[in-house]
Simulated scan of single mutants.
Amino acid sequence: MTTQLPSTGFLRLPQIIGNPKANPPQPPIIPVCRSAWWAGVKSGRYPKPVKLSPRVTAWRAEDIVALIASAKG
């Protein structure tokens, strides 16, 4: 199954790393665990998030698309 990424907008963490407990299960775009993702954000490997509200963190879809493109070579 191929996940279609939006060209603009925001993605929440479960949309990026997947959520097997969702109904239906959400496949990962980047298959890492939550702690590895946050460690990568802290080290600069993954893009910095945007705080949409005090309890909502998201990533720009453009940043995730660029990350995937850079990983492919």
Results as ranks from 00 to 15, higher is better:
Pro6Met: 01
Lys51Thr: 01
Ser53Cys: 04
Pro27Met: 01
Pro20Glu: 03
Thr2Lys: 12
Val32Lys: 04
Pro27Ala: 00
Leu5His: 03
Pro27Ser: 02
Leu11Gly: 04
Ile68Leu: 14
Ala22Gln: 03
Leu5Val: 00
Thr57Asp: 02
Lys72Ala: 15
Ala36Pro: 04
Pro31Met: 12
Arg12Val: 13
Pro20Trp: 02
Pro49Arg: 05
Gln4Met: 08
Ala61Pro: 03
Pro25Glu: 08
Gln15Val: 10
Val41Asn: 01
Pro14Cys: 08
Thr2Ser: 14
Cys33Gly: 15
Pro24Asn: 07
Gln26Thr: 09
Ile29His: 06
Pro54Phe: 00
Ala39Phe: 08
Ile68Cys: 13
Trp38Gly: 05
Val50Gln: 06
Pro27Trp: 01
Arg55Asp: 10
Val65Asp: 10
Gly40Thr: 07
Ser70Gln: 13
Ile68Phe: 11
Phe10Leu: 12
Glu62Ile: 09
Ala58Met: 12
Gln26Val: 09
Trp59Met: 01
Met1Arg: 11
Ser7Ala: 14
Thr8Ile: 15
Cys33Ser: 15
Ser43Ile: 00
Val41Ser: 02
Ala36His: 10
Pro14His: 07
Thr57Pro: 03
Ala39Tyr: 07
Pro20His: 04
Pro20Gly: 04
Asp63Pro: 13
Pro20Ile: 01
Thr2Ile: 09
Leu67Ala: 03
Cys33Tyr: 15
Val56His: 06
Arg45Asn: 07
Pro31Arg: 13
Ala69Asp: 13
